[in-house]
């Protein structure tokens, strides 16, 4: 799997952080859930939660 595809070799290889199994599952779940929105279907996109319970 190569993110860049072309007719020559680039100078610097692309380093992609490997996802943990949990993170992979989380991505698959959120993507699938998003495609089924409607009715009572609702889910939390974890990476987009931008607050916490600590009141400042």
């Amino acid at each position: 799997m190569s993110l860049l595809k072309g007719n020559f070799k680039v100078k610097k290889p692309i380093k992609e952080k490997k996802l943990t199994e949990q993170k992979k599952l989380e991505e698959i779940f959120e993507k699938s859930a998003k495609q089924r929105l409607g009715g009572s279907m609702v889910y939390v996109s974890k990476s987009k939660v931008n607050w916490d319970l600590d009141e400042k």
Binding site: L3, G6, K15
Partner: peptide, 29 residues
Amino acid sequence: INAGHQVQVYDQNAWRKDDAIVKEILISD
């Protein structure tokens, strides 16, 4: 490519990677 130039393609619509990866791609050459 047919005109003899060096070409690479990054398909963000297909891969949908975050900014960190896009940066890696941009500085790869």
